[in-house]
């Protein structure tokens, strides 16, 4: 019992994933700052940002559907915590925890879903625009990620257990060392980019035009919950990609963590490069990009994966 609680709360659960996610976000900010010849924030910036939010007052819009408005960020965070714990337990301790990849895929929809519902319940016109964009974008990126997930499933001998997917990679070679694996990895990267609302896919939160869109009416602790769940997603999405495609087997524990952190920083770096060399897309262009370029690419990947390539 105590073991489960420790696994859930401290390592590799909530506190660990929050910490790593916050550091990941900081790295992303730092990279961006360096791209723009700025110094960038200190490493503890994200922690004090979140802390400050919990000390501020909460403002609730007068016309909002109050219950949904308040519970949305909390449900959002609860789902993200569960996903992070599931993924981290599998990667670091080799424990199958609560569910398989399809469960994770569906649980990962909940944060976006309640972001949208929270935005809609606030009855702010700008939030409405953000929610509409987020819904459409969700349709785009989730489908692309599904193809990438199916490729990983086929590669592991049609098993949907995350443990089997990682075990097959350890036994033979990482999934990324094949044509379909590379395709799936690229698609998953775009998924993470859009899910985390990073430029060029940040139309839902576009600060310059709709002022943070979906979260415009949120403040204080409620916004804090959003921030925490986003920081944890910064940890769990790269972790999901790593365990699906680049699981490398090592004997020593130290090397295992070292490899993880190298890969993690690499993924954050790639995302930050994409962010800094692209402008924000229009929603229609993003849909077209995901549906008519990446989705056929994913289907090609599925075909290749079936032939064992």
């Amino acid at each position: 019992m105590l073991k489960i609680v420790t696994q859930y709360l401290i390592f590799p659960g909530i506190i660990f994933s929050f910490f790593v996610g916050a550091m990941g976000f900081w790295l992303e900010r730092k990279f961006t700052a360096r791209f723009q010849y700025r110094v960038g924030p200190p490493w503890y910036q994200n922690f004090i940002d979140v802390m400050k939010l919990f000390l501020k007052e909460t403002i609730i819009p007068r016309n909002a559907a109050k219950t949904l408005f308040i519970t949305s960020p909390i449900i959002n965070l609860a789902a993200v915590i569960l996903v992070s714990v599931m993924l981290a337990n599998n990667y670091f301790l080799n424990i199958s925890f609560m569910g398989d990849v399809i469960v994770i895929l569906y649980l990962l929809v909940i944060p976006s879903l309640f972001t949208i519902l929270g935005a809609l319940s606030s009855k702010n016109p700008l939030a409405l625009v953000g929610a509409a964009r987020e819904t459409k974008l969700m349709l785009a990126y989730e489908f692309v990620f599904i193809t990438s997930l199916i490729i990983a499933i086929i590669k592991s001998g049609n098993s949907i257990m995350l443990a089997n997917i990682t075990a097959t990679q350890i036994l033979s070679k990482p999934n990324i060392a094949s044509a379909s694996g590379i395709i799936a990895f690229i698609l998953a990267l775009f998924y993470a980019q859009a899910k985390l609302c990073i430029v060029p896919f940040d139309m839902a939160e576009a600060e310059q035009e709709i002022m943070a869109g979906t979260v415009i009416e949120y403040s204080g602790p409620l916004l804090g919950f959003y921030k925490i769940s986003k920081l944890m997603l910064y940890f769990s999405l790269p972790l999901f990609i790593i365990s699906l495609f680049i699981k490398v087997h090592t004997q020593s524990t130290l090397l295992k963590y070292l490899i993880f952190f190298c890969l993690y920083i690499l993924i954050i770096f790639i995302m930050s490069v994409i962010k800094n060399i692209n402008p924000r897309m229009r929603i229609k262009d993003a849909l077209g990009f995901f549906w008519f370029w990446l989705l056929p690419l994913g289907i090609l990947g599925i075909v290749l994966a079936q032939f064992g390539l």
Binding site: I60, P61, N63, N124
Partner: peptide, 14 residues
């Protein structure tokens, strides 16, 4: 949420 948001304010849409 209950403990941290002692200060709760209802306001117009921004």
């Amino acid at each position: 949420f209950k403990f941290s948001s002692q200060k709760l304010r209802v306001s117009d849409t921004y």
